[in-house]
């Protein structure tokens, strides 16, 4: 058995077209999270107990290997994947496949983030900034958060050693446009900031676009994502790739 000290893997999407723009990827879900966000899309991944059904690493690697001609990379999601030091071994194994790796993190583990970047185990980091870095952050995260760690992670990414994006999930009644502006000021100068609305619980796409336009004063590439676009012409969306609001 390989990877005896790898993090608990709770799920896999063998090939996905929606988790990393421009790439077909496998998505690996790692169990365990240090936050308790109200609208968590994967509450089953919060705990890290063995009773929660772990997928053997061999199966995960086998599924990825069988699709090696199709997938460009692997996205590691959680939970919070950087919470467990064993994730490094998983990343090393995946690197051996010659695949690009993206990690989706909540930014609470800056040391682990630095380490994976330093060891060149990741090609892209997507960090969620859940709220302005004030007391509001604790409410949105459902627990007390070390805001210093969040600042540090933002700083690590802004240093540009690895490709990255910041993202914020917008729920109705939870974040105002001032909040989004506050986040944008915190990550000022970032290459890419993605605003996403939760299906059926978030603001309309028009509202989201307005938020993105405002945030665009601080962030160069501000994107809107994650909402069906039935009523819009496809060409505005796709003629130049994604919908993009420049500052």
């Amino acid at each position: 058995m390989i990877g005896s000290s790898t993090p608990p893997i709770r799920g896999i999407i063998e090939s996905s077209l929606t988790h990393w723009d421009g790439r077909i990827v496998a998505v690996v879900f790692v169990g365990g999270c240090n936050l308790r966000c109200g609208g968590c899309p994967s509450p089953h991944l919060i705990g890290d107990g063995c009773d929660q059904g772990e997928i053997p690493l061999d199966s995960v690697l086998d599924a990825i290997y069988r699709r090696r001609r199709w997938i460009d990379g692997v996205v590691i999601k959680g939970g919070e994947p950087l919470l467990k030091p064993e994730v490094l071994e998983l990343l090393e194994l995946l690197r051996d496949f010659g695949l690009e790796i993206r990690i989706d993190t909540n930014g609470t583990c800056p040391e682990a983030l630095s380490e994976v970047i330093r060891r060149d185990l990741v090609d892209f980091v997507s960090m969620e900034v859940k709220a302005p870095l004030t007391g509001q952050y604790h409410r949105v995260a459902g627990t007390t958060v070390d805001l210093g760690a969040i600042f540090d992670s933002i700083g690590i990414l802004l240093s540009g050693e690895v490709d990255y994006e910041f993202r914020t999930v917008v729920y109705d009644g939870q974040l105002t446009s001032d909040d989004v502006m506050a986040i944008a000021r915190t990550i000022k100068g970032a290459r890419r900031y993605v605003l996403r609305a939760v299906k059926d619980k978030g603001p309309s796409r028009t509202v989201l676009r307005g938020l993105a336009r405002s945030a665009g004063r601080h962030v160069a590439g501000c994107h809107v994502d994650g909402r069906p676009q039935d009523r819009e012409t496809p060409f505005a969306l796709f003629a130049d790739g994604d919908e993009r609001m420049n500052a």
Partner: peptide
């Protein structure tokens, strides 16, 4: 049919087409 799990970016779909052609 690609819309089940979200809205893939056009460049991702092009990547799928490219791989389909070659694989």
């Amino acid at each position: 049919f690609l819309g089940e799990d979200g809205h893939p970016a056009p460049e991702t779909i092009i990547a799928l087409m490219w791989k389909t052609w070659h694989n």
